[in-house]
Structures are given as structure tokens and as C-alpha cells.
Simulated scan of single mutants.
Amino acid sequence: MSQAILWGLVAASPLFVGAVLALLRTWPPRWLGIVLGFGAGALMASIAFELWQEGLNIAGPIPLITGVVAGALAYFTADRMLDARAAKSKDRSAGAPLALGALLDGIPEQLVLGIGLASGEPVSIALVVAIVVSNLPESIGSAADLLEGGMTKARVMLIWAGIAVICAVATVAGFALASVTGDAFRSAASGFAAGALLVMLVDSMVPDAQQKAKTVTGLATVLGFALAAGLSLA
């Protein structure tokens, strides 16, 4: 259990650290777009080489695809609810969808991490670095957009601290539930994270990066994908 707590904190900490970095300085829109584009590429690699491939290897296509559809629908529904709430308050920040995506990705991803630890699977340093590479830009971009939208620093920190804590607890929960879950659950959890991320990338993260960084967005995305893919395959 101590291992699950340790690795849960390590995997979730980039979410909080990214928010801190966004508060320490004002990020010019172009640089923020480059960070978002880089993070989007890293998340694409995570979907392709970790979530999808691992889910497929564990239990085959049916649980994986079921999870993908569920994750996509969960993000889509939750994001529409955010839109409806924002329309009433006239306070819709571009950072909110990224925070939602981080939550819906982080919970199942770290559940799988906890289950793997309980099963005796080693945690690779490459995987930890890949998590940092993908999560850090996501939280920097979201926190910066939330601040730009007028949210107070205290509230931004509270949101991202809450997301980080929930994701860390998910690792411990996965460790505790390992004895009553099977390969199909792990595969579906990986698919859920992949589905939620795919919708978030297309609907929010990539368009936001393109709007801010313009012509260099594609290059930043490819660099993020290449680095994260290399780490995943290491």
C-alpha cells in the first residue's frame, strides 16, 4: 500500500505543479499555445502507446472499445453541463475543459496504475517521465486560462490540488480493488481514459493551442508526440 501512495503522489503531482507554474509567472499567449500543443502531442502518444495498446493487450478489443465509448460520452456530457452552467453565469473559461479532461483521464489511468502495483508489476521510470510530460503542460495551460478568465489564484490552486488528490487516491483505490477486479476492468479503464482524452483534445486543447500559437502549433505537437512516444517505447 505504501508503494501505491508513493507512486500515486508522484503521478498526480505534475497536475498541481503545473498550476503553481502558471501562478508564478504570466505566460504570453504564444508560449502558452506552444505548451498546450506540446502537451497535446504527448497525450496523443499516451493514448496510442499506453492506454490503447495496454488495454488491447490485457483483455482484447471489446472491453477496451466499451471503455473508449463510455469515456467519450462521459466527457462530452460533462462538458455540455459546464457549457450550460457557464451560459447562466456568463463565465466560461477555456481552462475548464482541460481540467475536466485531466480529471476524467487521471482517475482511470491511476486506478490501472494501482492495480498493476498490487499485481507486482514494476513501475518504469520512462512511464513516470511520460506522465509528467503529458500532464504538466495540460495543467499549466488550464490554470493559465482560468486565471485569464478572471478566476482567483486561490480557487485555481484549490481546483488543481483537488484534482491531484483525487487522482492520487485513485491509485490507492486501484491497489485495494486489485483482488476483485479483472483484466476486463483494467482494459475498460484504459479505454475510458483514452476516450475522454480524445474528445478533450479535439474539442478544446488543440483548438486552444492553435488559436494562441498559430503556425508553430503543429511543430510543438509533433515534438510532444515524439518525446512521449519515445519514452513509452523505452
Rank of each mutant, 00 (worst) to 15 (best):
A102M: 14
L103P: 11
L103K: 06
D105H: 15
I107R: 08
I107P: 11
E109G: 12
E109W: 04
E109Q: 12
V112E: 03
L113K: 06
G114R: 06
I115S: 09
A118W: 02
E121Q: 14
E121C: 09
P122H: 03
V123G: 03
V123H: 05
I125V: 12
I125L: 14
A126V: 02
L127S: 02
V128D: 02
V129K: 00
V129T: 01
I131M: 02
V132P: 07
L136F: 02
L136Q: 02
L136C: 05
P137W: 01
S139E: 02
I140K: 05
G141F: 00
A144N: 05
A144F: 03
A144I: 03
A144L: 07
D145R: 08
L146E: 02
L147K: 11
E148Q: 14
G149T: 05
M151A: 14
K153D: 08
V156F: 09
V156C: 11
M157Y: 07
M157H: 10
L158W: 13
L158T: 13
W160K: 09
A161C: 11
A161K: 08
G162M: 05
I163K: 07
I163V: 12
V165M: 11
I166K: 09
I166P: 11
A168H: 03
A170W: 03
A170R: 06
F175V: 11
A178D: 03
A178W: 03
V180P: 15
V180H: 15
A184Q: 13
A184L: 11
F185Y: 08
R186T: 08
R186L: 14
R186D: 10
S187Y: 04
A189K: 09
A189Y: 07
A189L: 13
A189F: 07
S190F: 15
S190H: 15
S190I: 08
G191I: 05
G191M: 08
A193Y: 04
A193S: 10
A194K: 05
A194N: 04
A196N: 03
L198D: 07
L198A: 13
V199L: 15
M200W: 04
V202L: 15
D203S: 12
D203T: 06
S204D: 02
V206K: 02
V206W: 02
V206C: 05
D208C: 09
D208E: 14
A209W: 00
A209M: 01
Q210I: 09
Q210G: 10
Q210N: 14
Q211T: 12
Q211G: 13
K212Q: 00
T215C: 12
T215S: 14
T217D: 01
T217N: 04
G218N: 07
T221Q: 14
T221I: 13
L223G: 06
L223M: 10
G224K: 00
G224W: 00
L227Q: 00
A229G: 07
G230H: 00
L231I: 00
